[in-house]
Design a protein around this nucleic acid. Structure first.
Length: 517
RNA sequence: GGCAGUGUAGCUCAGCUGGUUAGAGCGUGGCACUCAUAAUGCCAAGGUCGGCGGUUCGAGCCCGCCCACUGCUACCA
């Protein structure tokens, strides 16, 4: 049975360089993608850039470059970030690609054929300065009865021809969808918000613009380009080969998960499924929203000067530590806070001291006392059995946590096992057994190595480099690194020659005052 | 304003359908050990579970009121 799993990040708007928020979403998605692959699923992992729209035009003008050149340059910066983070996306979609034009126009035609698209006028109070429309109630009265935006900017009444999507017709169908699939939107709090939003009623959606041309032309009406909704969201099926339903990747649709920021859940949980229903296509299985990151509890902003470059951070702390920190520290789905001190604390305590040192202390004993081979195992004590049972239970716990995308919980459970193993090692004191009962010492070392093997397997999605190195140190063959191998039948074989042990994670030592990110 | 949610040790958070002395990690204090990356282990201190009232044999978990905080209340990706 083929068990396909398509996971996507939102596509990023490349009118600037990638920031930590982009990195966080990509790291999380990558961890999920790797997890699912290791758990035996056929995964298609997509990320990319959303390159159309007015902001791109304006940024390009400001910088004095062609829009396409700006898109090319910044899109490449997002790809570079992916490489720096170890992202294993199978494709990188750009909305300026021909395949995306084809898909967007095809889905538009299907929506139109279904009677859900009509031409009308988009009207409202527009503030040129804010580049935004405002509701009547939001406006305030200025001098001489002039209407002002909440920002104090003057507004003018604008009417503009636009195509509309009959979103209002999908209210009940969406509510039915949410009711039939309680985990369609996660976490719970987002689901409540979306349901409450949709319950209040839906307006039709303006889905084209005729004031600029940087976009996908509307079929049969080249005066219009598609506005963000249809254009951006369609990327997910573009990458699956739409409209060619015989394409190699089409079987990956519908997506198993759209991972998005909490600010754009609605687009993915309301507009997107409505568009798909209109086009007669299956809707994604799940949409999950992650939270925002705060620097020492403060929002990142250019004016505060606390915007950090994710590439520099990954370089500074190391790719694994960088990934580990954000996925372990923040309950996935909630907002989180980070600081240099917090990252260093996690890096040293969890990675260097707990896991790194556990591997070092046990494997160096194996190297010195077992001729560098996996030790022999004798009869198991109750302690041995208990620890091994805890290890072999880990994949199941991890899988259960992944059901809610509780990445932090998977890592917490894994580090609980690391701590148990350190306790076990200290209690068994193999260094003392060396003189009194060498056979028992070997058994203790074998059990420790076997648990490390399981830990190595389960940490691969989160810190691929270090986990790979740990498995190398245990001489685990490349073909035996799936979660399915985290079981007794695949236990590490006594006598196997092991490489010379070496440190997994260096301790982070402050270079000087004020150093760090 | 309306709707939803949160408030548990210094910090970040667990606490299942209400049931013996409320937990974890980090941080703090002390001890032990020496295999190990000055790593690890053990012990301890520390909480009126936001406040008040109620239901109950019994409430952090249920109900009411109050206080504080957060999110949503559509065309910005």
């Amino acid at each position: 049975m083929t068990d396909r799993f398509f996971i996507s990040t939102a596509i990023s708007y490349p009118n600037g360089k990638p920031h930590l928020g982009h990195a966080y979403e990509l790291m999380a998605a990558d961890a999920i993608a790797r997890f699912m692959r290791l758990d035996g699923h056929d995964v298609f992992f997509l990320t990319g850039t959303d390159e159309h729209g007015l902001k791109m035009i304006q940024t390009a003008e400001r910088e004095g470059v062609a829009v396409q050149a700006l898109a090319d340059r910044n899109s490449e910066a997002f790809r570079a970030m992916g490489r720096a983070l170890g992202a294993t996306n199978d494709d990188f979609i750009r909305t300026t690609e021909p395949r995306h034009y084809a898909a967007s126009q095809a889905i538009w035609r299907r929506m139109a054929a279904n009677g859900d698209i009509y031409l009308s006028t988009y009207k409202g109070w527009y503030s040129v300065r804010d580049e935004a429309f405002f509701d009547e109630e939001e406006l305030t009265q200025g001098e001489g009865g002039k209407r002002l935006a909440p920002t104090g900017a003057p507004v003018e009444w604008v009417e503009e021809e636009s195509y509309f999507f009959r979103l209002s017709a999908y209210q009940q169908k969406l509510l039915d969808l949410y009711a039939a699939h309680p985990d369609f939107i996660g976490p719970e709090t987002r689901r409540n918000e979306v349901i409450s939003f949709v319950s209040r009623g839906l307006h039709d959606l303006s889905i084209s613009r005729n004031t600029f041309t940087w976009g996908v032309p509307v079929p049969d009406d080249p005066r219009h380009v598609m506005y963000v909704w249809v254009d951006a969201l369609t990327n997910y099926i573009t990458a699956c080969g739409f409209p060619d339903e015989a394409a190699a990747r089409w079987p990956y649709w519908p997506a198993g998960l759209h991972l998005v920021g909490k600010d754009i859940v609605r687009f993915h949980a309301v507009i997107w499924p409505a568009i798909l229903m209109s086009a007669g296509l299956p809707v994604p299985r799940r949409v999950f929203a992650h939270g925002f990151l705060f620097n020492r509890g403060e929002k990142m902003s250019k004016s505060l000067g606390n915007v950090l470059d994710p590439l520099a951070m990954a370089e500074h702390y190391g790719q694994d530590a960088f990934r580990y920190f954000f996925l372990r520290e923040i309950p996935f789905g909630q907002d989180g806070s980070y600081s240099h001190e917090a990252i260093v604390a996690r890096l040293n305590a969890d990675l260097a001291n707990d896991l790194g040192n556990l591997a070092q202390r046990s494997l160096s004993m194996v190297a010195k006392n077992c001729a560098g081979r996996v030790p022999a195992k004798g009869p198991f004590s109750a302690e041995d059995e208990a620890l091994l049972a805890a290890a072999y239970a880990l994949p199941g716990e991890a899988r259960a946590a992944m059901g809610d995308f509780a990445l932090h919980a998977i890592l917490a459970a894994t580090w609980k096992l690391v701590a148990d193993t350190n306790r076990y090692f200290a209690a068994q004191a193999p260094w003392a057994l060396r003189k009194t009962d060498p056979a028992r010492m070997e058994t203790v070392l074998w059990v420790t190595a076997e648990v490390l093997r399981v830990i190595g397997l389960l940490t691969q999605p989160f810190m691929p480099l270090a986990a790979g190195k740990l498995l190398d140190l245990l001489a685990v063959p490349a073909g035996a690194r799936l979660f399915a191998h985290a079981a007794a039948v695949f236990a590490i074989a006594p006598g196997t020659v092991l490489p010379e042990p070496s440190a997994l994670f260096p301790r982070y030592v402050e270079d000087r005052e004020g150093e760090g990110a």
